[in-house]
Amino acid sequence: MHLILFIVFAGLCLAGALNLLLQKHPINSALSLVVVMTSLAVLYLLLGAEFLAAAQIIVYAGAIMVLFTFVIMLLNAGREERTLGSKAAVALGFPAVAAILAVIATVILKAQDLGSVSLSDGITSTEELSRVLFHELLLPFEVTSVLILIAILGAVSLARKGHGDQEAGK
């Protein structure tokens, strides 16, 4: 059952990622990214990380991607012009991708027993996760939130500055 779900949603995730690159219209690309985020959330769920899955949906699919689509709608972005890219990119890019894929493939083929992937037992449930976050990792957690706060303050002050200039110009 888990394997079937994994294959379905891993496939969906890859298809969404490819579609994201191939679509010409920005809004289709944004929606493909939503598909990728949501299928990633299902993969987290299959690993037993329920809180992470919910956070992935609420934060990425529900808030950040809505802002992306919001901006695309607001700017009324049209279709992208498809260019062939530079010759150097084609000449270097394809061999580079082939080389990376070859390296990964050999590593995977060499390792006979990959074992099963699972999160460490301590942090699966929401309660355990919060205990880790608010006891053992309290300082890094709080420092990160202060960092985000600084970013917000910076954005607000930049936005206000532009606004003030406009008012002065009038």
Partner: peptide, 25 residues
């Protein structure tokens, strides 16, 4: 009966925005 029932409700509500946003666009 989901362990994170409340988060499921909030998450699905937050996805519901797309219906309205895409309809308008």
């Amino acid at each position: 009966d989901v362990n994170i029932g409340l988060l499921v409700v909030l998450g699905i509500t937050s996805i519901g925005v797309y219906g309205i946003a895409l309809a308008g666009w």
